[in-house]
Structures are given as C-alpha cells and as structure tokens.
C-alpha cells in the first residue's frame, strides 16, 4: 500500500474534483453539439435535413410548409446543420432538458409562432 500513500495524503487536503451540481453549473463548451433549432422563415422546406437525419427525427411537409421535429429522437449529430442549403438550422451549445412527455415541435413561416407544441403524430415510421 506504500505506493498509494502519497495519493491518500494528497486526497485529504485537496478540493473535491466534482461540482455541487444543481448549485454550480459548468458553462457549456463553445461549439458543443446541443439542441437543434429551426428557423421557420429561412427554411424553404426542401426536405434535405429529413432525408439525411440518421435518427429520422425530422419530417417536412412541403405542401403545408411545415416541419415537424422530434427532439427526443434527435441524436444531436449535427448532420442536418451541415446539409441545410439555407442555414436555417442552428445548433445551440446547451443540452436538451428532460421532459415529462416526448413532445413534437412544429416549425413554419412566422405566422405560426415557433416552436409550438402539437398533438399531431409526426410520422408513420
């Protein structure tokens, strides 16, 4: 045990390595991949993001100019942000908060206040 004695003594006088979480929060790192937000005005509803999404979390209705996003399916890979031709998708640094239900976000041109929660089932898949 003699080898470990140094570490034991050091531990006695050291500050804890962890944070008292709910009271002290770490700032999210810059460029962390967190929440995905869409801009309903910039979006042209081309559906590129929904085709590329590996988790099938996005469904675009071209005719009704609406985009349905399921945040709890999203794996925050950021692939949609890369493929969007209009830069209408924005990835924030914060992580998604927990929720009581798996809500679906609907985005559209600004007449519809975005994001609004809907009851409509997003997709058959």
């Amino acid at each position: 045990m003699a080898n470990f004695l140094g570490a034991v003594i050091e531990n006695l006088f050291k500050k804890p390595a962890t944070r008292p979480y709910p009271f002290t929060k770490r700032e999210p790192f810059k460029d962390a991949r967190g929440l995905i937000k869409f801009d309903g005005d910039k979006c042209v509803y081309c559906g590129a993001c929904s085709k590329k999404c590996p988790a099938a979390a996005i469904r675009v209705e071209r005719a009704e100019k609406a985009l349905y996003f399921e945040p709890f399916k999203c794996v925050t890979c950021g692939f949609c942000v890369e493929v969007c031709p209009k830069d209408a998708i924005n990835q924030e640094f914060e992580y998604r908060k927990p929720d009581y239900s798996k809500s679906i976000e609907k985005y559209g041109p600004s007449a519809v206040p975005a994001p609004a929660k809907t009851e409509a089932p997003p997709s058959q898949a």
Binding site: A32, R33, T76
Partner: peptide
C-alpha cells in the same frame, strides 16, 4: 471542447 460531444463525438 474539440468535437462538441464527450464520447460519441461524430
């Protein structure tokens, strides 16, 4: 810091 995620760095 470098990739945006802890383990599944994509």
């Amino acid at each position: 810091k470098t990739t945006g995620a802890r383990v599944i760095i994509s």
